[in-house]
Design a protein around this nucleic acid. Structure first.
Lengths: 338, 338
DNA sequence: TCACCTGAATTTGCCGATAAATAATCATTG
DNA sequence: CAATGATTATTTATCGGCAAATTCAGGTGA
């Protein structure tokens, strides 16, 4: 049978609540008793029942992680896995557990969150993707539920906990560098504007273009579902009207898809760069220049910010910017392009 | 304030336990009352407090997922992510939650499992990696805790729930096919024998070699940490004493690492194949022949088998073999190798 | 010596839901 | 018409731990 607080109490010759006090390290218990009770606990291999404790405390020490499941995206992109690891390592150290949940649509996301909140299963929630007008964020705000966003909500940015890269600057850096390398007709292939991350990256692209006094050219900008296939198709279309001399994509696969179209069309020597430092970028020939967004750190800090909030740390930071590093590889450096 | 069973009872004009019975769909409640109570519940937006329910039931509807964190391995390999998705989809459909937990060593694994059990946090546990002599499996068996293994324990195989591929046959198939294609000196680069999966794959290799009347050659077999780097180094050594005409690796990156060494050594035309259908195998030039082990299905069935066990289904299957598909790509077919 | 205080431990009543035991209602039947 | 049984609903105790209220023991000071 399971060892409960009562068994420990009996064996140690005290009342159950004394044991409880010992666990909570209450100052009202004499050192002698504490020691005795602790010994009995160890002897009996006692572990508090978390469920019972949660019921009494209204605290579960569990965080709910919402993963969007835009099918393939989640697979090939190590982003989520890295985030999960960062979360796990920090949370474990702080004594928190993490439940994860794939949601195949925004509705399912909202439903899941609702359920988490109503059933009191989790103390806080972690979102890993944000739209400009995000229903999950709205719901969580309205219900005053602790949560953190990996990424950055657009509305009420200062009231929400978030951890993000500076995506504007990250993209600006790439484009500046490409311009420095002599490129002028730089194509941007990005995800939909409803997601904050892509909006930011486009902004960075725009700023770099403008700062360098290059004329804005709408024909070089494409937005859509950020997959290799779509990017490939988009570039095929673009090539009918204009030939870029470089490509930036909001993901490595996207940049690569677009690049493939240039190769097939016989447009040679196009430089290209992406985001996320995916296996593709390392193994591809040529290796692909990319931005390492430090997903593990994003996860780590997200857990930290949220847990601090839950434990009402006054010194806590509410928002954290994680550095992103541009890694130059063959695709934007001199190499023999076929 | 939170709506509890009592509030609903009061408003519906019945006792709390009647509401509880309605929720449990007990036959002892009249249809009229059921309807009335259900309406009140909806009206008040009542959601049962899972914690309280768990305490009373001794059931949490939560599964604990143990992820080994052999650093890089987990990152680049989509295996775990796919397993997680398969688990999540099935579990959600059955009303179960999943907690995940990275463990950086076997000790941490055992510790985590111990904690899960003692604190009564989870109903069952999912293991994603198994050694020949697995401490986690031993512990779980000893404590009579429900669990399922993705992979296959060696000892007490018939007493444990598991879901696995037929790795012997999968590897046998590859090697048979390579032999059929005219290869004779096939190198095997695999993970350590302490892991069941690698033991099985080696067995498959051996069987294929023997069945085809090819002389066994120790020099062609290497076992060690299954990383690209180690495989590369191992092949460098091998090339000093023998030149294989084909390579099989227990992972795509392993096969690739070994292949790279042959290229660098100027040994041309070596075919190679791996496992896991990783992004590398798709994006590499040449594309790599590989075995898709259907990780998502492994996850799906693992959840199913475990949940069936928890719910004491008599018809349940205790073990499931998930098919593995060999995908032939350029690396083992005719193509111009540089 | 008695009233009073303080520190240490115990009683008691929750937290919210469940289920066994009990009670109430109504219909059937000898 | 009372007794019996079937059906439906309510009381009550419980899951394991927590904390407010309470009791108890011992020490102070008047």
């Amino acid at each position: 049978m399971h060892v409960t607080i009562k068994h420990v109490a009996k064996k140690a010759g005290v009342s159950p609540s004394t044991v409880s006090r010992v666990i909570a390290d209450s100052p009202k218990i004499s050192v002698a008793t504490k020691k005795r009770v602790f010994e009995t606990m160890k002897e009996m291999n006692y572990q508090p029942n978390i469920i019972a404790r949660s019921l009494a405390n209204r605290v579960t020490y569990t965080l709910g992680l919402i993963l969007p499941s835009k099918d393939e995206e989640v697979f090939e992109n190590p982003f989520f896995m890295q985030v999960m690891r960062g979360l796990s390592v920090y949370a474990k150290q702080k004594g928190y557990y993490i439940m994860y949940n794939y949601c195949r649509s925004e509705e399912e996301e909202v439903e899941t969150i609702q359920h988490y909140m109503d059933s009191k299963w989790v103390d806080g929630i972690i979102l890993t993707s944000t739209r400009i007008k995000d229903k999950s964020v709205e719901l969580l705000m309205k219900r005053d539920q602790p949560f953190v966003v990996i990424g950055r909500p657009e509305a009420q940015r200062d009231k929400v906990l978030w951890v993000d890269n500076d995506n504007v600057m990250a993209m600006e850096n790439i484009v500046n560098r490409l311009i420095e390398q002599g490129h002028r007709k730089i194509a941007y292939i990005g995800g939909e504007q409803q997601f904050t991350v892509y909006r930011h990256r486009l902004r960075g692209y725009r700023q770099a273009i403008e700062q360098n006094g290059i004329d804005w050219d709408d024909r070089l900008v494409v937005e859509g579902e950020p997959t290799e296939q779509k990017a490939y198709e988009a570039m095929k279309q673009m090539l009918k009207i204009i030939n870029p001399d470089a490509i930036v994509g909001t993901d490595d696969t996207v940049a690569y898809g677009a690049y493939k179209a240039t190769i097939e069309a016989g447009v040679l020597g196009v430089a290209f760069a992406g985001f996320n430092n995916t296996p593709l970028s390392i193994y591809n020939n040529p290796t692909i220049s990319t931005v390492d967004i430090n997903a593990e750190k994003l996860g780590h800090y997200a857990a930290q910010v949220l847990i601090d909030q839950l434990e009402k740390k006054t010194t806590m930071e509410r928002n954290i910017i994680v550095e992103a590093n541009y890694i130059e590889r063959e695709s934007t450096l001199d190499y023999v392009r076929r």
